[in-house]
Design a protein around this nucleic acid. Sequence first.
DNA 1: ATTATGAGACTAATACTATTAGTTTGTCAA
DNA 2: TTGACAAACTAATAGTATTAGTCTCATAAT
Lengths: 203, 203
Amino acid sequence: MGAKGLTKEIIVAEAVSCIENTGQPTVSLHELARRLGIKTPSLYNHIKNTKELQYEIFQYAIAQFVANQRDATEGKQKDEAVRAFAHAYYTFATEHRGLYRLIMSIPSEEDERAKEMALPLLDTVVAILADYGLSEESVAHWQRVFRAILHGFISQEDLGYFYYYDAVDLKKSRAIAVDCFLDGLHAGIQRETGIKHENQADV
Amino acid sequence: MGAKGLTKEIIVAEAVSCIENTGQPTVSLHELARRLGIKTPSLYNHIKNTKELQYEIFQYAIAQFVANQRDATEGKQKDEAVRAFAHAYYTFATEHRGLYRLIMSIPSEEDERAKEMALPLLDTVVAILADYGLSEESVAHWQRVFRAILHGFISQEDLGYFYYYDAVDLKKSRAIAVDCFLDGLHAGIQRETGIKHENQADV
DNA sequence: ATTATGAGACTAATACTATTAGTTTGTCAA
DNA sequence: TTGACAAACTAATAGTATTAGTCTCATAAT
């Protein structure tokens, strides 16, 4: 046939749209082709394989997520920035469930390419934590802890592993989780520097 | 042919063995049949479908995980129990990667059956937290936070999302994460009861 | 001892997935 | 006008799960 004006970008956009709609991190090539009005194998004129397509969507998702985090924490510092980051993180993960799932299902230890693409995910949180005056090593540790809490919370909630309680209680649990991180961080800083942090909540 | 003495239990055991070996949370029926010396469709004489098989393995994994946690924390209380639990949790997740992944990939909100099977996962941690004298609601919140940290940490590590540092540093990050939880918990208890907890680490 | 029944194996076939090979066609440029 | 490439197509392969229907062996009943 020839030109329908189809490009890799259009395919990726359609895949993203699909993922956003379904909340699933994947789309079958069949479904994707159907939506684009072509037959499945024709997709291979524009993409190498599903893995490559996944990478493209992954990159898009990362960019969105990072931009969202940057915007949410811009101009904020320390505890306020931490809270804003946590809120933005949670909001993105729930409003873009499929994209978040994709981000959290792609990389594995061996996949250097995915790892590299995901590196920007660290920037904002590292900047926020560095602002507390922590050593570089401590920042590395605490960004792990922070991101572990955020992802762990969303993941468990997503999996249905929180049981019993409704949305209101979940909100409170989230607040407690963030407070827990901040309390732990303040205590950690105090141990490291011997100084009680001025921004510590003292309720 | 007739009786080879094959049972559902043998199939599940073989699947578990496979999962333990590969670290993957799934086994294909083809591979499973090959290992058992039968043809794929013959499996359906003993199992309903892959979903059912998954449930069986899921149940086994949960039981192992729970027993492991109980053993590890038996006779321990408060911070010591929390640390022991965290250690056991991490050890199980890394030594039984496939089973842990399975546990963390099965349930979703709609799946009431899986949810119910997973409930025992709460018992040990709830018992430990209840011992701090928290209200029932607080226990519910804090078990979420605790399990979120534990799973978040393992998940991020498993995904390769921790970057930069080697195994030694990871160990330190884990210790910081657990300390962070305890500091946060102590602070939370202090807020709730007005009493500084006697077991609080004061390094 | 013979036979009948049923559990549990088998083969064959269907319906999804991704992917490759090879063919056709439409458009644009020489 | 024509030639060539891009990009569509059809056809086929291979790996998943699953169902239908067949065959056979071991055991239980006559």
